[in-house]
Nucleic acid binder design. Structure first.
Lengths: 200, 200
DNA sequence: TTCTGATTATTCCAACTGGAGCGTATCCGG
DNA sequence: CCGGATACGCTCCAGTTGGAATAATCAGAA
């Protein structure tokens, strides 16, 4: 039971369709914008493929060269690869992973800056989130229009839903700060001034 | 303008309060459960501290040893550190980072498994999320009872809100799948059977 | 014809991460 | 007073990651 990282999952998904060489995988990732699901860079892609092979989830079909170009190695899934992929999809669906969104940390540190500054930045985030929602809506409209099976793109809906929830929360926070429902701790306020002084 | 990773942010936050040596930082991270905001391990902590020093955001106050224990190096923020920390908090508050939740990927790959399996795993996730919400509520109740300034723990509220949104979405999805509002693509269904055959 | 820039494919290395391991020191029971 | 558990505090290394560098081919412009 070897660990399968996100990028490896994308590779498995593509090989699930048909055998391919790494460069082709790279192309498809771009075409289909699979980059929105994992960070993909050239280096890590080749490493991921190498590791999958070492772990026996994929195997070499053949290595050919056209002219004097670098050799192309084509890979395909092994049956162990098919099984691992399936397990991993199910596991990721069921288990709530521990993740570390940047914004959660910013929120936790928010009290270390001035209230005014904080609200200004939160308003910027709200704006960005609204724009993101707009883009998502357009994408979803396009996909609907194309009459593609919805199951193939429910992840767009998921991402949209989460963005919406974040926007709601941010707007609520800005609100609570403006109305005074939520107050800035006096201690924190003093600490900021103090550090400001020190730096002179 | 050097990049500041999440772990480095936690270090800066603690040094923001008072000078400390790495081991003490480690202790405080545990005490205050700062581990829920970033992945913290011993190794990466020492590296993070070293890098912060190289980048001039923190500096050595003194290195002392008690008895024959290993030397303890105490660090403190430089003024450049104070400034960088502030900028980073604000930047993280305003910018919507590109992140890669595991579940989003699972959702995108869901069509590669059998509908029945998928729904079962989604129900498990919903259950886990509900439990998570329960825990969050207890924590929040405790914090409220302790009369701690709310600004010091709004991140718990944020996390709770996002979990709730995810739960709503998952329940909705299970629903749509059960009522037939969302159908499993026939092509996908066939592909699963096909691979199943192959492996015999 | 030759130069320029895009395309095809991969290698390489510097940086980062995680966690096992190591050498004290102190505390506590028998 | 001796042996084992636990606390202290750090180093080291194997594994990953990101992206620059490389290297050959091909299409089109000058």
């Amino acid at each position: 039971m070897v660990a399968i990282r996100p990028l490896a999952m994308v590779v498995l998904e593509l090989l699930h369709e048909s055998p391919m060489h790494p460069y082709e995988i790279q192309q498809k990732i771009h075409e289909r914008q699979l980059g929105r699901l994992t960070k993909v860079t050239v280096g890590s892609l080749y490493h991921a493929v190498e590791k999958l092979q070492k772990d026996g989830l994929i195997e070499v079909v053949d290595t050919s060269r056209e002219g004097k170009r670098p050799e192309r190695t084509t890979y395909r899934l092994t049956s162990s690869g098919v099984e691992s992929f399936r397990c991993e999809v199910l596991a990721n669906a069921a288990e709530v992973a521990v993740e570390f969104p940047r914004f959660a940390m910013a929120v936790q540190h928010l009290h270390t800056v001035r209230p005014g500054e904080a609200v200004a930045e939160l308003r910027l985030r709200a704006k960005a989130l609204r724009e993101g929602l707009g883009v998502a809506d357009v994408t979803i409209a396009e996909l609907t229009a194309r009459n593609l099976e919805p199951m193939f793109w429910i992840d767009h809906q998921y991402t949209r839903a989460m963005r919406q929830a974040e926007l709601d929360w941010v707007e609520r926070l800005v609100d609570r700060l403006s109305t005074g429902e939520l107050v800035w701790p006096e201690a924190a306020r003093r600490r900021v001034e103090e550090l400001e002084e020190d730096r002179r």
